[in-house]
Design a protein around this nucleic acid. Structure first.
Lengths: 349, 349
DNA sequence: GTCTCGAATGTAAGCGCTTACATTTTGTCT
DNA sequence: AGACAAAATGTAAGCGCTTACATTCGAGAC
């Protein structure tokens, strides 16, 4: 029957020691079989692996992490889950990590700065080997904390040569400036912009700056710009658009800080009986799947999300490898997708 | 300029013992301050907390988990991140957990069965106190494994009284049958259906079954149904729609297994010059944000995602509390949102 | 044969924390 | 003033794993 102390009903979770006992080796050998099999004799190895199978043994991750100081885990804190923008990039990031046997811990900050800090600390406490962070903006203390803990962090979705951190992303200022130049070239001179809240979001800020830059180049005074900041969302985008067109009916184009806001604007325009782009042009940013489905199709800035995710994974793994010694910065190109929602400025009678 | 002893290169990560030393107490007391402060004298507590702050101490999660056998962590495996359908529910799930100081580990299976198994095992190895699983379908071994490990698991997004597992969700069969009855009542008798792959997906299967059920009730033979299975995606939905309308041009309505496929179908219809719903009706399932933005607005089955997420969290926490003794099943109501994409069957000349 | 060396395995010391149990301190009641 | 319970704190044994170091063994090299 059952060996005494091996009461099946109490079937405890098998441990390394159980495997060792069954295979008649020391725990060290079992551990080696699992981690560095080449150091173990073939015969022994087979015996051990058989025992592993028999017992249905699975290593306890926490114990392993504790003993080995390495977790094969990366962490990421995204502003929100509920957002097609990050979904694609993160998915690619995860896939690439998965290919290398690394698990991804995902946390979301709900666009709240303090929550992001907390999540970062949690991730570090959980032993993440490296962290992917969205955008540069966060208190210096956090970066200090990360450095002290020797946890390599990679900033994504942004790129700025003036920032000292490792990053992979694109230059939000330049990307938006490029788009804005096209806009201005078509005679638009009463500009609206709907932006996500700028305070804690360098990407949003950069996009606004890009527009301002292009306007300055074109000699358009600041007064020609109507800027509205609003939370991320289709509804809020729609409301912001209505606000702009009510306050400044002469507006000929509304640039949006992201596609979701733009979709909202598009919808609001339709609701107000405005034709797009005959009466007013609308543009987005990100080129999410929806952009091409909108009616009319949305002109927007295309961002290589999947490539960014994939390469972010590779880069971060490398950083973990060599202790984050070198600070690499990778700038990814964006390009403008001109679609139906954008046309020349209307002739105002 | 650095404070002596704060040599950034050597600054080791502070441990419980460091805090204890600095506060002049035993490690046990520090631990109690952190976990059960009411057991510690006020004065001592202050001293310890001060030391914690001074040192910037943060508990090592893995060590804690190892010693305490409790991680305050839940896990979830979702088919894909890149999917508005789960995003909302999971976000609510996470928020509710967060309110109770529990972290969520998210893994994605890319709709692959084996990958899901692997992720479940990983999550368990990482010490998740409980698991949220999408749908019932998975090998019995997995459920056995979970039981042996005493990790409570809650199935979501599905509900079936015949299944023995704890669950919170809705009856996919009934929900789709309800919608289908409405469809049939309006004279449609050449039915197309675009479904996600059914093999490993009880939700998708249930929805198809629901349609079949309604057809049977209405006395419509199986031959009146054109069923296409295809991967999740707008493009694939569009392709499937084209396929159906090409093969069986008399089709008067196409029901889709989810909104994303339906959006694709809508788009394809437009591309083919078909008017919706004058020439053909189209319906979706899930009522994601896009449904109302589609052109025409999409008729669909509304699912209370956020409520499901929130209550799933509560239920799962309770299950962890009492060791998953009682098997609770919660059925959530769905309802039909009739919108523009759906109308009476056209008179075929 | 003896010596050396490398391969295979074992021994045991932690990793940073929790917690049962033991001990000391304090306050209360007679 | 003494006895005793309750409150506060300490002691120390692990949790399950990795890994530096020690040991054993057999195969050449001489």
């Amino acid at each position: 029957m059952t060996t005494p102390g091996e009461d099946s009903s109490a079937a405890a979770i098998p441990t390394l020691a159980d495997v060792a006992r069954r295979a008649n080796v020391s725990t060290a050998t079992v551990s080696r079989c699992l981690n560095t099999p080449e150091l173990v004799g073939a015969e022994t190895r087979d015996r051990v692996m058989q025992a592993v199978r028999d017992l249905g043994y699975a290593p306890n991750f926490n114990a392993r992490a504790l003993a080995a100081k390495r977790t094969n885990t990366m962490g990421v804190v995204i502003p929100t889950m509920d957002n097609a923008i990050f979904a694609r990039g993160i998915q690619a990031f995860q896939e690439e990590l998965g290919r290398h046997g690394i698990t991804l811990l995902i946390a979301s900050s709900a666009y709240q700065e303090e929550l992001e800090e907390e999540q970062i600390r949690t991730l570090v406490a959980r032993g993440a080997d490296g962290l992917l962070l969205i955008g540069y903006h966060r208190r210096p203390e956090i970066y200090g904390f990360l450095r002290r803990r020797a946890v390599p962090a990679l900033v994504a979705w942004s790129f700025d040569m003036d920032e000292p951190h490792a990053a992979i992303g694109f230059d939000n200022v330049r990307a938006m400036a490029d788009l804005a130049r096209r806009v201005l070239a078509l005679g638009h001179d009463r500009i609206g912009m709907i932006s996500a809240p700028i305070a804690a979001n360098d990407r949003a800020r950069g996009r606004v700056d890009g527009l301002r830059l292009a306007m300055a180049e074109a000699g358009l005074p600041e007064s020609r710009l109507t800027l509205v900041e609003t939370q991320y969302g289709i509804d809020t985008g729609a409301a912001a658009f209505r606000g702009i067109m009510t306050d400044v009916p002469e507006t000929t184009v509304v640039l949006c800080g992201n596609d979701v806001l733009a979709i909202g604007a598009l919808r609001a325009a339709k609701g107000m009986g405005l034709r797009v782009p005959a009466d007013v042009s609308i543009t987005g940013f990100d080129d999410i799947e929806l952009a091409m489905l909108a009616e009319p199709e949305l002109t927007t800035v295309h961002v290589p999300h999947r490539e960014m995710g994939r390469r972010a994974a590779q880069l971060l793994m490398r950083m973990v490898e060599d202790g984050g010694a070198a600070v690499e910065r990778i700038e990814l190109p964006t390009d403008i997708r001109l679609r139906q929602s954008f046309g020349p400025a209307p002739d105002r009678a």
